[in-house]
Design a protein around this nucleic acid. Structure first.
Length: 392
RNA sequence: GCUGAGGUGGCGGAGCGGCCAAUCGCACCAGACUGUAAAUCUGGCGCCCGGACGGGCUACCUAGGUUCGAAUCCUAGCCUCAGCA
């Protein structure tokens, strides 16, 4: 079997589930966190670091890697994971989010990208060159990137869209996802290197239960081996994330893993998501926050919903703090260094600071997911959640 | 000693009669951060009135002076730097 998702334990009081995703490059125990390695690097860490902090899978991006170094280079290395020296399971994103994001957010760059039913015109943020991203191209890129899990091309709905734009985006995503599926089938569901790639359909629809489920049914009907859920409502506010996931909680088939794209909201967001059936998720802010000084702390160290389970290590109050970032954390950073030292490194823009902080944050997340898996196995997931959030 | 240049907020450095509590950068203090265009971005940053607004006070080396009004002009002093002896 090339790809398989198996639930080992269903939580009796919620939609949470513990299981395993089997991929050509190894197993992923779920629920799992995937650090983001957009440009074929989890910023500041190497694969040995990643393994040491129990990383199971990394996520790369079609948009960025297509622009640089380009798929010809990646192909010479047999995929982006071998390129970066990572031999475990990998995921790639389709690029849909990136291009829409540019268009949607009106950020810094002109000209903006243009989206039609045929695909997305966009201008490279690196050299300004014009490109046209279609479902076919995204699939082609992702085939070369060679990840075990790949994403359909979509156009996420957005807060800043008008009603009409959102309706268009929704329809367009269904169309593109179907086209992605067809191209994937045509390439016999395999990467350029002959390994099976599991294509995930992405559920759109924001907080609209009808749209979400229409999309979900379509994905199930098509026969995608996995399901992803995305857009801004999965973002950084745990309450909205919960609302968003409530629209489809309980409707995910037992044999399809559910991936939350860009699941933010810290540990609270993770619990809310797992409770509603999320099996795997990625999030770029875990590593970005590390670099900017926001480090996660366990409840034993004072982490709570109120402080979002984190401290800002750059705050002057830590300048002379000899204690580790988290005394109940057994990552290399916490076992070896003081808060004062991490404070010093990050406020001095020393590169070691980024690395040590990133090690801690990813370890924290992987450890949290481990604790959740253990709790699921023991049948007391909601107790763990209550312990952390002081509520259910 | 002579000649020239200059002394501005923690630092660098604008301003050269009113629009100056003083551009800007750094540092500092906070905040934010979704499928990473992020070692990024945003805000604050003389003191006081709790924050904003508004207001008060003290300020541009020191001491005087000119002026309705001076960081900006004049005089003296002190100090720094460069060149020459």
């Amino acid at each position: 079997m090339d790809f398989e998702f198996k639930v080992k334990k269903f939580d009796k009081k919620s939609f949470a589930r513990g299981g395993v995703i089997k991929t050509p490059h190894g197993d992923i125990e779920t629920p799992a966190f995937s650090p983001v390695g957009t440009k074929a690097t989890v910023k500041s860490l190497d694969p040995v670091d990643l393994k040491n902090i129990k990383t199971q899978v990394v996520l790369g991006n079609a948009y960025h890697l297509y622009l640089k170094p380009g798929i010809e280079t990646i192909e010479n290395f047999g995929g982006f994971a071998p390129f970066m020296g990572w031999n475990g399971p990998a995921i790639t994103d389709s690029g849909g989010y990136q291009v829409s994001f540019l268009w949607n957010r009106k950020v810094r760059v002109k000209p903006k990208s243009k989206i039609s039913d045929f695909g997305m015109y966009f201008y490279s943020h690196i050299d300004g060159s014009k490109h046209f991203l279609t479902p076919e191209l995204s699939m082609k890129i992702q085939s070369v990137l060679g990840a075990d899990i790949i994403m359909s091309l979509d156009q996420p709905m957005g807060y800043e869209y008008t009603k009409k734009e959102n309706a268009e985006a929704f329809k367009r995503s269904l169309k593109w996802e179907e086209q992605s599926f067809r191209f994937w089938e045509k390439s016999r569901k395999k990467s350029k290197y002959g390994k099976y790639q599991a294509l995930f359909g992405i559920i759109q629809g924001q907080l609209d239960k009808k749209l979400r489920n229409e999309c979900l049914k379509f994905i199930i009907r098509m026969g995608f081996p996995g399901i992803a859920i995305g857009d801004e409502t999965i973002g950084s506010d745990p309450k909205i994330t919960a609302k968003s996931l409530d629209t489809i909680a309980g409707n995910i088939p037992d044999d399809k893993p559910l991936h939350a794209l860009g699941l933010g909201g810290g540990p609270e967001g993770v619990f809310e998501a797992v409770k509603r059936g999320v099996d795997i998720f990625d999030n770029s802010s875990v590593t970005r926050m590390a670099r900017t000084g926001l480090l996660f702390i366990f409840p034993e160290d004072g982490g709570s919903v109120e402080n979002k389970f984190r401290i800002n290590i750059k705050n002057s109050s830590f300048r002379n703090d000899k204690k580790p970032v988290s005394s109940s954390c057994s990552c290399y950073t916490c076992k070896t260094f003081s808060k004062a030292y991490i404070n010093h490194l990050l406020t001095s823009d020393e590169i070691l600071g980024s690395r040590l902080a990133t090690i801690h944050n990813i370890y924290f997340y992987n450890n949290l997911m481990y604790k959740i898996r253990v709790a699921l196995d023991a049948g007391d997931f909601l107790d763990l959640m209550k312990l952390w959030l002081k509520k259910i």
